[in-house]
Design a protein around this nucleic acid. Sequence first.
DNA 1: TGATAAATAGCACGATCGTTCGTTCTTTTC
DNA 2: GAAAAGAACGAACGATCGTGCTATTTATCA
Lengths: 200, 200
Amino acid sequence: MSTPITTGKRAATRETILDHAYALACNGGLEGLSIGSLAADVGMSKSGVFAHFGSREELQLAVLDAGGQRFMATVLAPALKRPRGLPRLRAIVANWFDWGRQFQSGCVLLSSASEYDGRSGPLHDSVVAQMAGWRHELCKAIGQAVDEGHLRADTDAELLAFEIYALMLGLHHDGGLFGFDQAKRHAERAFERLWRSWQA
Amino acid sequence: MSTPITTGKRAATRETILDHAYALACNGGLEGLSIGSLAADVGMSKSGVFAHFGSREELQLAVLDAGGQRFMATVLAPALKRPRGLPRLRAIVANWFDWGRQFQSGCVLLSSASEYDGRSGPLHDSVVAQMAGWRHELCKAIGQAVDEGHLRADTDAELLAFEIYALMLGLHHDGGLFGFDQAKRHAERAFERLWRSWQA
DNA sequence: TGATAAATAGCACGATCGTTCGTTCTTTTC
DNA sequence: GAAAAGAACGAACGATCGTGCTATTTATCA
């Protein structure tokens, strides 16, 4: 489930492949990721890349997992060093903003959500599981903010998590279409209004 | 720009093809739409379908246009019969909810937004133009609600339009991944909170 | 009804897709 | 240094992709 820290050659090149695959999937989505173009990007043969995963679907699942881990490491992990409650919540959102700017051309996780929401299979399940897990983390952080007295006692954590997520979707959407700066301005003001509306 | 109401055979079958293409694109996105599978779905030969558009890109543009027209006809047009201001705004959102339920497996316009936000070309331009146009309509309806005194005089139309759009993105996102009913419950409550926060 | 034009089918092309298989190169182990 | 194991390559497979070209069917009109 978690990345093995093995230092073998196999694991190293696999990581390299995943790096390139992740970058490619950021632009063309997981469905647009082909083994041929990936191999050319890495500088390996198709079969050499293929041998590391066994099938295209396994490759896609690996990219999805890698994306999820990077997201958690970039957005959630640094925020856990901040004090519980609203500060941590705001740190999460701030890191999420940076994550959004970094992948202006699209986040693998978000594009996967719209690519696989109507289908079935392992990829769909993995997307749903990751999204549910992240939503759960959000709810946890919100609950702590309520416990700390930063948010109203009758705060509906799931609803607020929905609202936070929606604003981030708006940021990504507008950022990709109309430019990140304008989208960020709107999102920042929307978040200030959101915090105020739930504040104790 | 607008659909010709010609009754010729060519236009009729073209419309039939677009119907099937739209349905297919709802599930697999515009990038996942192939002429071969479309022809099989319609019951025609590949070249027969191809002749109606001249290229795959023209087909995609036509599907995108058709999607935009249907969206406007379903979401905006009926709402224009409602009185200006908040009633019309709420009608837009209500119709938008129905639109979201109808295409549980994904809306072509939304999936196109994430498919083409990082690229360039006619498809990207068409998506941006459509999204900008729709956002403009939203702002117009918001401005009327301000003029009618339904919303605060200092309402930032663009910001509110962003917030409305974000909530609808959240509805589509959660609806596709976690089920439409739960997503709708969250979105409805979020919208009530949103209206109240801007009300005069 | 016969001539003309439009619409569709059929076929083939080069390219790319995911995948398999056997070979070659590189690394490790004794 | 020889032998065994591992990793990457290269070629080929059937399938599908978008796109031309040429027949053949179908509709239109005198």
